[in-house]
Every structure is written in C-alpha cells, then in structure tokens.
Design a protein around this nucleic acid. Structure first.
Lengths: 222, 222
DNA sequence: GTATATTCCGAACGTTCGTTCGATAATTAA
DNA sequence: TTAATTATCGAACGAACGTTCGGAATATAC
C-alpha cells in the first residue's frame, strides 16, 4: 500500500513505500501462531493437537496455516527454537551482572524458573515434546540443550573450586550428575506448579530461592 | 487338555484337570503384552505407537490384542497400574526394616530409582504419558500418585521434627514443596540415565545416595 | 467321542489425520 | 491504472488410526 485516504479531507496522500510492512505482518502473525500453538500443544500434547485444532483456535483456515511453515513438525521446531533463544538470551544478559559463581547459580535457576512460569506452555512443549522432533530438527534442539546444561556445569565447577580458585579441580562426573539433579528439580515444576494460585508462599522466586538453598548446601559439603 | 501322550510309551495318560491352567496362560500373555507395550510406549511415546505396531512386536494379530483389553487407553491404564503397584508394594516391604526417617528417605529414593532403572520403559510411560488417561482411569492413577507423594511428605515431616519428636511441627508448605523437588530430581533421571553404560561411577545406587545426600543436607538446615 | 468356552485372526468400517491443489482475495510495485 | 507478489481458503487426497465383526482354530469340560 503506497497511498492512503487522509481521514479529514479525503485527499489521496502519497507515502514512502513501507518496505518492511509485509515482513512485519508476516512475522507478527507467525509469532502469534507460535504462541497459540504452544498453548494448545501444552494443554493437549503435540500428537493430540491436530492441525484443524490449531486452525480453529486462530482466525485462519487449515490450508492457510501452511503458508507459515512447511510441516507440523517444523512448527514444533520453531516453537522450541524460539523458546530456547529467549531463555538463553535472557540468561546471558543477567549473568553479566556478577562473576560470583553462587550468585550466577542463583541467577540461572531464577531465570529458568521465571521463564518456565511465564511461558509455561512453550516450556512444557520444549521439555516434554522435543523427542517428537526428527533429523536435523532434533539434532539442533538437542545441541542447544547440551550447551545450556554445560553452562550450569561450568558454574558448578567454579563453585566446587571454591574461593581459592585452585586450578587442579576438573569437571568430574559428580558435577555433571549434580547439574542433572538440579535440572530435574527445575524442569519437574511444570507438572505441579500452578501459576493461577501464585500466593506469596509459593511465588516462583521463593521456589527458586529454596531450590538453590537446598541444592547448594548439599553440593558444597562434598 | 486333559490327556497327554506319555513320551516313552505313547500310552495316553489321564491327568487331573488343570483348572488354573487357562487363567495362568491368560495372565502370562497379558503381562507379556504389558511389558512389550511399555517398551514401545517408552521408546516412541503412547500416541506414536499404533495398535498395529504392538501387534507387530508380539506374536499376535491386531484383532487378537483386543481379547486382553477393551481399548488402547485401558492398556495404558493397566501398564500404569501394574507399575505403580509394584513400586508401592516393594516400598512397603522395605520400609518396615526401620523407623528412622532418614533411613526411610534413603529407602524410598533407592527403591524409586532402582525401580525406575529396572522398569525404565514402564516408568517412563507412567511419569510421562499418564496425562493421556481420561475419566476414571486418570482419576485412579492420579490418586495413587498423590498417595505416593504423601508417603514422602510424611517421612520429610518426621525428619523435620528431629530426634526430639516435638508434636507441634505441622505439615508445612515448605515440606510439600521439598517433596516435589526431590521427586523432580528422581523422575527426571529417565531423560538422561542410560542403563547400558552403568559403570560403577554412575550406578543407580550411587545416584540415589548422592541425591539423598544433597537433598538432606539442604533440607535439614532449614 | 460331543459340547462348550476360550483364544485368535483376516478383513473391513468409519473417522481423523497431515498435507496438497487450484483458485480467489488482498497487498505491493511501478 | 496494471502487473506481480503475497495471503488465504474450500475441497479433496491418500494414508493411518482405533475398533469391530463373524468365524476359524484351539483348548477345556463332560
């Protein structure tokens, strides 16, 4: 659209061509699709949500959806990718505020859980349904997961080194396992945390704090 | 079958009617079906495993399977039920060996993880797919889950009371949350534990021991 | 032996699924 | 304005799904 009716006079006025207008619209609708799809996938599961369900939940036809992705699996991949990017980007920003590894641990847990709660649907899909991916899609998401876990491992390694920063301490099997324990605590929350009744007693920040507290005391006294 | 050929003479010999033979055969095949189905469900997911897949994996026809359960969902229910019964029964037996709550905690975690590893397929289904149940099936399994979690809560309450056994201590929100954290640690193992390479360093008993260690230190110093 | 109950199966039914196609509507370019 | 690109959609396709049915095969009872 290069010209619009001016409201008051009805005179036709010429605008500079809005080059990015279409792409904006495209990406706006795409992200809308991703969000709504994640909601349905989270509620009913990936395999239990049909393309017709998705089309019905949005203002599009079944065939119209395929303008935004090639297959249903690509849609799942896009949701996973988008979620992961957001978590990691947010984490990177926050981690720069300190070099104290215990504080960094706290930041990681806080960031992870806050994102979990804020995007419960998408994260449920990511933690729960990404096994449904195949081929390259599966590989890409899995590598991102590994990289994410490795961040925690590195923080735990620094904590284990202690303030002396002795260089001899290596990444042990114990540290890798401990990281998995902590992720277990965090990721399991999607099965029981109810954001509807987030009284202060169970605010996600308190949950995060208590998790770190429990984990850290046990981890440090090795 | 009331008569069999005797091997040496070929003479027909009469046996007492084996009343339970048929029921034995029935339940033998049923449990075989449950085990094999759990394997497939665990590997490919409940919704991604078709009745034809199941029939193909066993020595039965598609229609023949329906002699042992009414619907596919009932099959999932039977698997879940069977797994739960086994875990709880085993736990009850072991718990009688001590009244020390810390030891009981250790027993619960050990029992849970050992069962997880020994029946990785079925437990994966139980922890992962039981949301696919509906109606009464869902309700029954969910109540069993709650009861199981409550056992842990009671043990944690005793630990929290301490040796003095003061009666004033009540079940707090913190204890309930802590129970969920611990279950998170335990149940998440199915995503990473590989029974194939169970070197001594990551034997499930050591994993259980370390989990209790980490959790307990943090939980006690409240 | 015959009669009864159990176990098994080939073939099909009706439904739902993900995806595609051809065409129409809407937007952008010039 | 006209041409080109993008967005949308109704309708249909082939495949796969869970389930059913009538009868065959087998085992049990008497």
């Amino acid at each position: 659209m290069t010209s619009r009716k001016e409201y008051r006079t009805g005179k036709t006025v010429r605008f500079a061509p809005e080059i990015r207008f279409l792409k904006e619209r495209y990406h706006l609708k795409l992200s809308d699709i991703l969000i709504r799809s994640a909601q349905l996938f989270a509620k009913n599961g990936y395999h239990n949500t049909s393309m017709r369900d998705l089309a019905g939940a949005m203002n599009t036809s079944l065939a119209g959806l395929y303008h935004y992705f090639k297959t249903k699996e690509e849609l799942l991949f896009l949701i996973s990718q988008y979620s992961f990017d957001s978590v990691v980007r947010s984490l990177d920003e926050r981690l720069q505020s300190t070099t104290n590894p215990s504080e960094q641990l706290h930041i990681l847990v806080q960031n992870h859980l806050q994102f979990f709660v804020a995007n419960l649907d998408a994260m449920k899909v990511l933690a729960h349904e990404s096994d449904s991916l195949t081929g390259d899609n599966f590989r890409i998401i899995n590598e991102q997961k590994k990289a994410y876990v490795h961040r925690l491992e590195l923080i735990l390694l620094e904590i284990h080194r202690g303030p002396s920063r002795k260089k001899s301490v290596r990444m042990t099997e114990d540290i890798k396992l401990a990281a998995l324990y902590l992720f277990g605590m965090m990721n399991w929350t999607y099965t029981w945390y109810n954001p509807a009744r987030r009284e202060k007693s169970t605010s996600i920040e308190k949950v995060a704090h208590r998790m770190v507290e429990i984990f850290l005391k046990g981890f440090i006294n090795n």
